Simulated scan of single mutants.
Amino acid sequence: MALATYIHKRAGSARHPDRETADLLFFPTGGGKTEAYLGLAAFTIAMRRLRAPDVLGAGVAVIMRYTLRLLTLDQLARAAGVVCALELMRTDPANVNERGQKLLGDWPIEIGLWVGSDASPNKLGRTGEADQTTAVGRVRRYRLGQDKRAPAPIKACPWCGTAFTPESFSCTPSNAAPTNLEIRCVNDRCDFTRNRPLPILTVDEPIYRRLPAFLIATIDKFAALPWVGETGAFFGHVDRFDPNVGFYGAAEPNHGRPLDNGWKLDPPDLIIQDELHLIAGPLGTVAGLYECAIDQLAERTRDGKRIRMKIVASTATVRRASAQIAALFDRHVTNIFPPPGPDRADSFFAVTVPSSTDPARLYMGIAAQGRGPKLVFLRALTTLLAAAQAA
């Protein structure tokens, strides 16, 4: 309790000038960048919950963005494990104050996957609808063996590693009027089974209402901002609450009760942009246009001071990073971590060792100008399989 009070009073003020500085994690592949910013995300979510009581600490605290959907799905399981740990801490009877209130709030700490409908259903649907791409339709088809794809793009429990089965997915409270697609582990000894689903949201509609503390998305998904009014809730623009469903903003009137004291939720505190070097050329131009809107939606003014989100980016290759970040995020000071040292082979944070001591990775590329990707994949895979057969 003393540690929680200290953190609450001393750490991570929203008014800190460091918010105007972008931090860039520049480290080789496999060096632990993901673990670094997952730890930062966990600290940010916990700080937000410690500062506000009841449900007022809810809302999207961290947005992690990727340029490729494959990267997004790959990172979901790792980030979900962190969120599972936070949710168990939130519900631990030991983590309460002197009045019996949960230190990490009354609203669940969840992670949301906000991507296109090919990877996860964008709508819940209901029984009898012709559209089979909804959550209800995909769960039904998956259970009947009519569709080999699971309703959610995650294969195993991020907490215990047990593989999911068709019975792991269900639309609750019913297929006739669902409010969420819930995922449960089939391992009876797992913490997230039976009446406790995993804190993972993969359908757009419940994501807009439940506002997961950790949101993973591809940058193209933010094209929905001007067309889907419910996305305004990501930036704290809600004023009503239903304890069984979630939060409501101006796009969904006549639902829920007013938030305590008429408060609105805080906007996101942290943006994590992975693989920064991929946002270049035409993609960088489009992303920069949306970034202006995102920055404006998340901006707040307190005591006459402008408060914006903290930007943390990561890359394994860097060139003109400060200029790119200034053009993309409007952050004119960039700190690169770790800073360059006097010895390229020993930067204190990483040491180069010979391959004779530690087996090294060999990265190879294929130059195939004027050839389609299918042909390149076919030739490369045929060669690899032939070599494996010969070995």
Score class of each variant (00 low, 15 high):
Leu88Asp: 08
Gly145Val: 05
His277Glu: 12
Glu291Met: 13
Leu270Gly: 07
Trp159Asn: 08
Met64His: 10
Ala135Ser: 05
Ala391Phe: 09
Pro282Val: 11
Ala152Tyr: 01
Arg257Ala: 14
Val203Asn: 04
Pro373Arg: 09
Lys123Trp: 09
Ala2Glu: 15
Pro268Ala: 08
Pro166Trp: 04
Arg379Leu: 15
Leu276Asp: 04
Ile63Val: 15
Thr352Leu: 15
Tyr248Ile: 07
Gly370Lys: 07
Phe329Gly: 00
Glu230Asp: 15
Leu71Val: 07
Val115Gly: 03
Gly288Ile: 10
Gly281Leu: 13
Ala323His: 11
Asn335Gln: 14
Thr67Phe: 01
Arg371Ser: 11
Gly137Gln: 03
Gln324Pro: 02
Leu381Phe: 11
Lys102His: 12
Gly137Met: 02
Leu38Arg: 06
Pro342Gln: 02
Ile183Leu: 13
Ala367Trp: 09
Arg184Glu: 06
Asn95Lys: 08
Glu129Met: 15
Ile200Asp: 03
Asp106Arg: 05
Arg306His: 12
Cys157Tyr: 01
Ala360Ser: 15
Ile216His: 02
Leu124Glu: 01
Ala46Thr: 03
Cys190Ser: 05
Thr301Cys: 05
Gly128Asp: 08
Leu225Phe: 14
Ala130Phe: 08
Gln146Val: 02
Ala11Asn: 12
Leu265Ala: 07
Glu98Leu: 09
Glu252Lys: 14
Leu259Trp: 00
Asp239Ala: 11
Ala46Tyr: 02
Asn175Thr: 10
Val115Thr: 15
Tyr37Met: 07
Thr29Cys: 12
Arg19Gln: 05
Trp227Tyr: 13
Val286Gly: 00
Gly232Val: 00
Arg210Val: 00
Ala316Phe: 04
Ala233Phe: 00
Pro199Val: 03
Met47Thr: 09
Asp266Ala: 13
Tyr208Phe: 14
Ile63Met: 14
Gly304Met: 02
Thr334Ser: 10
Ala22Cys: 08
Phe241Ile: 04
Asp303Val: 03
Ala213Lys: 02
Asn97Pro: 06
Ala14Ser: 11
Tyr6Asn: 00
Leu25Cys: 05
Arg189Cys: 08
Pro199Gly: 06
Gly100Gln: 10
Gly232Gln: 14
Ala386Met: 10
Met64Lys: 06
Ala2Gln: 13
Thr72Arg: 00
Arg90Asn: 02
Ile45Asn: 03
Asn187Lys: 03
Asp358Gly: 00
Ser13Leu: 12
Asp269Val: 06
Pro93Ile: 01
Ser117Val: 13
Leu124Thr: 00
Asp106Phe: 06
Tyr208Ser: 07
Gly256Asn: 06
Asp23Lys: 14
Gly365Arg: 12
Pro173Glu: 09
Val203Met: 04
Gln75Phe: 00
Arg209Lys: 14
Ala350Arg: 09
Lys123Gln: 12
Asp18Gln: 09
Gly105Cys: 09
Phe377Gly: 01
Asp266Asn: 11
Pro340Lys: 11
Val82Pro: 02
Arg379Asn: 08
Gly100Val: 08
Trp107Ser: 09
Cys292Met: 11
Leu113Pro: 03
Asp118Thr: 13
Pro108Ala: 08
Arg302Lys: 12
Ile183Thr: 06
Thr91Gln: 11
Asp266Val: 00
Arg189Glu: 15
Asp303Lys: 11
Gln389Val: 09
Asp346Lys: 07
Lys305Ala: 06
Val83Arg: 02
Ile109Pro: 01
Asp92Gln: 11
His255Glu: 15
Ala177Trp: 04
Ala345Trp: 12
Ala280Phe: 08
Glu252Gln: 15
Lys9Arg: 15
Gly32Trp: 06
Leu86Trp: 03
Pro212Asn: 05
Ala391Pro: 00
Asp191Val: 01
